[in-house]
Nucleic acid binder design. Structure first.
Lengths: 297, 297
DNA sequence: GCAATAGTGTCTCTAAGACATTATAAT
DNA sequence: ATTATAATGTCTTAGAGACACTATTGC
């Protein structure tokens, strides 16, 4: 097209004279919230192992937050897509190449990073523990899995003259053999007449870097919601699994018990029975199932 | 904390020597997807007006995409939060100050903007038509509402050796007294074994700038989903409304008819009856309701 | 009376939830 | 036989969906 702008310039003329660096720009990073489910050790030979939801964190070996724990991530290169950057970081930290990856939210507050104005897009990734081959990357000499604990601590509601303010305090506790990290998140819902607004902030932070507590809390919420209406759980499962495994995984993430018969009815269309079954488990063996990706039809 | 890094620097020393501009950085913009619902003119004195979902677009008066239509938005300043930038742009373009605003998605593909590497975070805003006082801003001499039409044109599924590929073609048509804009979006779902991936791309674009067709399509999907489990519809409604108004608004967004009695049962807890009612409508008057923000309890 | 919308009653069907019963492996 | 899990049956209840019927206004 050879249309001209108000200064009589064609598109080519405009673009060649356009200096995108004339304005000061923020830096952009990606942060990866990598979840997996693993089995805890069992005491009794005939008992099944308990499932535990875990998140991968990296011990920072540089300022700021030196020695504290952070989500894997890093700067987006000028010549790579946002999603490509996320996949690259994921691979650098975990060796996983084809993992499920979903964009979560972009954090852009002014003072979230002491190094300067840094905007970060967070991604959630789900992997099955068996498919990970960890090898510490260049800026990650210390990557570890942390067990996730999530609970609503307080839910208060104050009446105001025009409506009300509701504050939910959610505590996220991340545990490891040697570390306990905590973050308390305040989710505020302000209602004034028909105007509603939400705000999330960190009110307490223990050994977690940046605003990563916020990202983790948001990610857990997203994961829980998506469990109810999507099939993402299967990214956390191995190729073959028992229905009890599947149920325990749901229960661990949602943090509530489910009734077996009902659970099986609801998930029946999502899975396909295979020829295989468990053996040597100290009790009745269980059929193994696999995910049925055509369940939507 | 006075811990030192591997080079023996304290945090202060590190930060003062840290040059965040050493790496080339992208530019960051926000784009606002502003929806409203308006009444179409009526022919018959006793008939109610039809509802129509509309989106605000701005005619570009500069390269690139000179003369085409784009979402309102602009560069994020180095000294403002991401959300603040979105609110600022929204106010500049529409005069609306307290509107509902929700982050949608961040687009970061390499070649989405011919001016250079630009990453854009999109926001969805919902306003009631009565509360808008339009006044064209500096780089927006031409802001107009477009009626939104959205339809699934084709849904094809091909078997592959390891699974299948599903392509959905969705056409978004934006109409105005003088313009018809179109965008065809392809949503691809690739299933290979248990690995599933999604991809969205524009396959046809008529008079719409950048990847804005993609943003609009995604926004409509988000809006539809949220209608089902949240109360955002009320941001599109006036202070007082009839249940029929509310129902027609749902129907317009979801693009399907609802059954009155069922609709009223389901929305009953979301609203409060008032003393007021309509009058001079050429048929039985209707009670007016208002949103009940405490419906969650 | 009529056109158009307002508002309510009720039947059916499905799915969620709760609970109970039977089955089968390892020791 | 005991223990722990596997697998299925069935009753109840809540809610979605479909449809029918009555009510009220302006002209």
């Amino acid at each position: 097209m050879s249309e001209k702008n108000t200064k009589g310039m064609t598109e080519e003329e405009f673009l060649s004279s356009y200096d995108i660096k004339a304005f000061d720009r923020p830096s952009v990073t990606v942060d990866i919230l990598l979840f997996t489910i693993s089995d805890e050790d069992v005491s009794n030979y005939r008992k099944l192992p308990k499932k535990s939801l875990r998140v991968l964190l990296i011990k920072r070996n540089e300022h700021p937050y030196l020695g504290m724990w952070a989500l894997p991530g890093g700067f987006v290169r000028i010549d790579e897509n946002l999603e490509t950057a996320a996949y690259r970081e994921l691979k650098e930290e975990t060796g996983v190449e084809n993992a499920y990856l979903e964009q979560l939210y972009t954090y852009g507050d002014l003072n979230r990073d002491p190094r300067g104005r840094i905007i970060s897009t967070s991604y959630m990734s789900l992997v099955n523990k068996n498919e990970i081959h960890m090898h510490a990357g260049s800026d990650a000499d210390d990557a570890r899995w942390f067990e996730v604990d999530y609970q609503l601590v307080k839910d208060e509601k104050q009446e105001t003259d025009k409506g009300f303010i509701e504050n939910k305090f959610i505590e996220v506790i991340l545990t490891n053999e040697t570390n306990v990290l905590k973050s308390m998140i305040k989710v505020t819902r302000t209602v004034e007449g028909k105007h509603v607004s939400y705000n999330r902030s960190i009110v307490e932070n223990d050994k977690l870097s940046f605003d990563h507590g916020l990202i983790i809390q948001y990610g857990i919420e997203r994961l829980r919601n998506k469990l109810e209406y999507s099939d993402i759980i299967f990214h956390l499962m191995p190729e073959l699994f028992t229905l009890t495994d599947l149920q325990k995984s749901y229960e661990e993430i949602l943090d509530k018990p489910l009734i077996k018969a009902n659970f099986r009815r609801k998930t029946a269309k999502l899975v396909t029975e295979t020829e295989h079954s468990t053996s040597d488990v100290g009790h009745r063996p269980s059929k193994l199932y696999r995910f049925n990706p055509s369940w939507m039809d």
